[in-house]
């Protein structure tokens, strides 16, 4: 029974194994970045950046067809350009980060849709927007896993400055010159995570596997280490269940994975011990001191 439902699909079909590997890599590489996005109150920034990489991917597609490498490099260039430009505008002018980022990502998104719709077919647009996790080839998997590894190593190196930049940016600015570096490397990580994920989940769904597990983890853990572990665990479980649901019920896999992550968020919201609705509604008796 469990064999049939859970193991069989992966045992029988290579594409399911590949999809699972890809999703686990995304969970390990991109989800921790999502935790930091949430902690820095930049959850929506992830969404903005996801739109920003579209024209790059589209240009890559125009130049080289449905080539993974070209679309990835294009997406990365577009994402970095938007991140750097908005970061520069924030630091050099009176405009705040949210407004400058919104301005650039909207320009970028409009450009992307224009390029895709004039030159490509609607099917291509759907590929870029919603991903094809069940059709990952070797090159895509190697790229995905490399980007995930890069992201994990960078996060490990950047961990202390990043925590300080989140908790007390003023102190980081006063004790070291790493504040700006940390900020831009972190934005680069966001772009890398999105570019790595969009092949599998699409540009729009890629943010889902970053933010939803992070938001769910907030109801289970109170420390930063616990948050990271809980978020990655939620992301991997959502990937596994989403893939199985999509296999058994012939659902599109990207949205299935994200919806399971959304379900995990909903359950956490209600039953999570760290500030969930039930925990709030049924408080235990207070202590003496």
């Amino acid at each position: 029974m469990i064999w049939d439902a859970v193991i069989q699909p992966f045992a029988d079909f290579g594409f399911m194994r590949r999809a699972l590997l890809g999703c686990v890599a995304i969970s390990l590489g991109a989800t921790p970045v999502g935790v930091f996005l949430m902690l820095r109150r930049m959850s929506l920034t992830g969404d903005a950046m996801a739109h920003a990489i579209l024209p790059g991917a589209a240009v890559g597609y125009l130049v080289a067809g449905l080539s993974l490498g070209a679309m990835t490099i294009g997406g990365m260039i577009a994402g970095m350009a938007v991140a750097l430009l908005s970061g520069f505008v924030t630091r050099a002018t009176a405009l705040r980060e949210d407004a400058s980022l919104a301005a650039f990502y909207l320009i970028s998104l409009a450009l992307g849709v224009l390029i895709v719709s004039t030159r490509g077919s609607n099917v291509d647009l759907m590929h870029v927007l919603f991903g094809t996790v069940l059709a990952l080839d070797d090159a895509a998997l190697i790229l995905l896993c490399s980007l995930a590894s890069l992201s994990v190593v960078t996060l490990a190196l950047l961990f202390r400055p990043l925590v300080l930049e989140c908790a007390d940016p003023q102190l980081l600015r006063s004790v070291s010159g790493l504040s700006a570096v940390t900020h831009f490397v972190f934005l680069a990580l966001v772009v890398i995570s999105l570019v790595g994920s969009f092949q599998a989940l699409g540009t729009l769904m890629a943010v889902g596997i970053m933010i939803l597990p992070a938001a769910a983890a907030r109801f289970w853990a109170t420390g930063i280490g616990g948050l990271l572990i809980a978020a990655v665990a939620v992301a991997i479980l959502a990937s596994l269940s989403g893939l199985l649901l999509s296999y058994h019920y012939s659902l599109p896999s990207g949205p299935a994975i994200i919806l399971v992550a959304g379900l995990a968020y909903g359950v956490s919201l209600v039953f999570g011990p760290a500030g969930g609705l039930v925990a709030r509604a049924l408080p235990r008796r207070h202590l003496e001191a």
Partner: peptide, 21 residues
């Protein structure tokens, strides 16, 4: 201070940041 009071960090860890130099 710019400190984000909702950031999940303990008193010990925040104090230890003083050792940055």
């Amino acid at each position: 201070s710019d400190i984000d009071r909702s950031f999940p960090i303990s008193v010990r860890d925040l104090v230890a940041m003083g050792l940055w130099r």
